[in-house]
Amino acid sequence: MKNRFLQGLLAKAELGPLILLIVEIAVFASLNSDFISILNISNTLAFTVELGLIALAMTLLMTSGEFDLSVGSVFGFSPVLMWTLANSGATSLVVAFFVAILIAALIGLINGWFVTRLKIPSFLVTLGMLLVVRGLALFMTNGFPQRTWSASGAWLPRILAGEFYIGDFRVYASIFWFLGSAIVLGYVLTRTKIGNWIQASGGNPNAARARGVNVNRTKAGLFVLCSVMSALAGTISSIRTSAANPDSGTGYELEVIAMVVIGGTALTGGRGTIVGTVLGVLILRIMRNGIVFVGVPGLAYNIFIGAIILGMMALHSGLERRHNAGA
């Protein structure tokens, strides 16, 4: 009985990332007790969930065998569009928000159309879209950041990124968006027909087509989801930081892909895990936070980040091999 439980646990793809996360927290906490202070946990979660929202959608897209490099650009572009419309008085903040989400969905649809209809690899399509969207944000604003102070008091910003306290612990509303999205997308991926289509599209698209799965439509839908979640994350971030800069989100695409892969989703498609991605998001963000606490020299920061990512990937790969051998 005990053996079966252990075997079941070892067979879980999420076990590796979970062990990594626990080790990471234990090491950082033992080196600096402030690391587990309420203030630091609250601060870390604020930015973590914004990247996490994109990572959740990216998990589904990568499971279907594609990925999206334009998410960072959409993260920057959508809030800029929303605040430009709202600040210029062209429309209300709420309408501007939905316009921005709609445009993001259109960007995703264009990505999906290029990939599925024109058969161009998603790497190239979304790399092109990254430049188009980033250029659009810069051109539209002439480079000037949009003011977001007018958000205070409005209900939409409160729902998206409002803050409240539980004792001394500051909680941002964005964490509920993240948790809600994780639950819904986790359920979709593991318990629904759509989840099967996604995994089949990434694992063996020809076999999936033969069994009646509309692979193209599935992938296009996931590109739309990825763009919409990036737009939502960007909007939340712009409200929290009171800044909508056209170059926000630069480099996020690679960090998000790293989070998803560390979590256990296959880079080649066919297998994905939302729980693993949540762990991957926490692993990377806590690592960035933790190395500041252990006193890594400021300009050596990236050396440590890169080295730790390599080390974690090696450890992850070792655990993965053991898991596959045991399965």
């Binding site: 600096n32 601060n43 930015f47 800069n245 630069t250 606490f293």
Partner: peptide
Amino acid sequence: ITDATLDQADAISRMSDYLTA
């Protein structure tokens, strides 16, 4: 000297981490 990056959300996050620590 610490690296804050040109991305404001990331800059705020990194600077907050450093200041907290």
